[in-house]
Design a protein around this nucleic acid. Structure first.
Lengths: 167, 167
DNA sequence: CATAATACGTCAGCTTTGTTGACATTCCAA
DNA sequence: TTGGAATGTCAACAAAGCTGACGTATTATG
């Protein structure tokens, strides 16, 4: 590992149990804020966070297959299927039989699906943007660094797989 | 608000939707990592994340009342009660009738409770410490800044209330 | 061509963790 | 002494995860 931190003097005070506990608690409460706005919107419909996640990643990678989505989300197909079925029935997601491989179903958002996606994303992005703006670019860089270092192996792999697609 | 970021040139590139989306996805996957280790430990027992949270905050503020815990966790008393009952029955939490106000129950971890708390905290702290060490103190400062700016009002109030107790 | 593997869907049942609503008990305080 | 606050309990329910089993196309492989 490329250690940027030199162990000079009390430079390691940020690694005390006290500081770590604060970080843990901040992470807990921040995640609440992170999901609060979409949660509020979804509560009015018959949807939850699972639907939001599905919609987010279908929007991010239109035409993705069920198996792809399964791998990214890390849930069982039964769990995802329940969510997808509702979204398809409600006309938010379109499921297309694959051309090369007819076993596969490619998933797309319908116009209504895209509209909901935008509503949810806007709410979540607005909070994120406000936090970013308040903290400044250097803080944001650190934020991202720590987050990426905090992922477990599986999550990191999923996050990395996303990068190949777009960003 | 004290804005550290100057709007000079392309200094706002960190506020693009693209960057925000990356932050959102990083937050999602990082939270998985954040809970992965305790989750693994708890899965072997009949416990879940809710038990972990209760144990964490009882450990942090020994003698706290049920109502206090309710306010911090932001769940219903019925939901918390189920969790607390299990922990008390299993001898991990001790519930003491208040002296000044006998309606209140003050919560403490037993030795067994403290042992489990240490096991869970160690797992979570280890990952956090590794992430902190890899990212360095400046990144950690930014991480904390963004997290605190991301909390919704309620979560921020709960987080702030904790500070009054210890740190 | 026969068989195995893959992708997907579905049924049934279980768990955790949250929710409401109703109601009893205890006890402080006006 | 009576009203209200704090606590606890019962019942019923929902969201979203899980396992296991099974069915059905479709593709890949021996």
């Amino acid at each position: 590992m490329d250690t940027g931190a030199r162990d000079s003097g009390n430079a390691l005070l940020f690694l005390t149990d006290e500081q770590l506990r604060k970080g843990i608690e901040a992470m807990f409460f921040a995640y609440r804020g992170f999901t609060a706005d979409p949660d509020r919107i979804l509560a009015d419909m018959a949807y939850g966070r699972a639907h939001h996640r599905a919609i987010h990643f279908i929007n991010r990678s239109p035409g993705t297959t069920v198996n792809n989505l399964l791998a990214i989300l890390g849930v069982t197909k039964q769990s995802l299927n329940r969510v997808l079925r509702a979204l398809v029935e409600d006309g938010l997601v379109r499921s297309e039989v694959g051309q090369r491989d007819k076993r596969e179903r490619h998933l797309f958002l319908t116009d209504a699906g895209e509209a909901l996606e935008r509503t949810l994303s806007d709410a979540q992005r607005d909070r994120m943007r406000a936090a970013y703006r308040a903290a400044g670019p250097d803080a944001v860089a650190g934020f991202r660094q720590v987050l990426e270092a905090m992922m477990d192996e599986e999550s990191a792999a999923r996050y990395a797989a996303l990068k190949d697609l777009k960003g």
